[in-house]
């Protein structure tokens, strides 16, 4: 039987204690993060990803259209266009604004959805371009 070594015993116990503290801290952080996700700034979006992409496509289009307006009427026209986006997408202005606000706090998701919207716009543009070209020929 080996001799009991008090120093080794203390060292082992300290290491185990450190592990337990680490595990506990990790669980605490995970718990805190899950609470903030369910109640706070990362609350769930009302629209699906596809619906948000469609909203972005419409908003990008009306933004481009609004640039053609006289600067003096752009703000009021933005409201008119927003109503049209709401009508086209079937989502209320409040839902759209609320989800876009939430998305500002979710940069990764925002990036993915904006990229999808730009891909969509590109596809629509290409399709219309070729249709116009075929029509002209």
């Amino acid at each position: 039987m080996g001799r009991f070594n008090f120093e080794t015993y203390i060292y082992t116990q300290t290491e185990q204690m450190k592990k337990i503290i680490w595990m506990f801290s990790y669980c605490l952080i995970a718990f805190a993060m899950s609470c903030s996700n369910s109640n706070g700034k990362y609350s769930k979006l009302e629209m699906t990803n596809e619906e948000i992409v469609n909203v972005f496509v419409q908003i990008y289009s009306v933004n481009a259209a609004n640039q053609l307006n006289d600067p003096a009427v752009r703000d009021s026209m933005a409201n008119v266009y927003m109503e049209q986006v709401s009508r086209i997408t079937g989502k209320s202005v409040m839902t759209i604004k609320s989800d876009l606000d939430k998305l500002k706090q979710m940069p990764d998701s925002l990036y993915v959805l904006q990229s999808a919207a730009l891909d969509t716009l590109r596809a629509i543009y290409e399709k219309n371009y070729y249709k116009t070209k075929e029509g002209a020929n």
Partner: peptide
């Protein structure tokens, strides 16, 4: 939607 580098067409 998990891969941000995949284009919409290739998702």
């Amino acid at each position: 939607w998990s891969d941000p580098l995949t284009t919409d067409h290739d998702r």
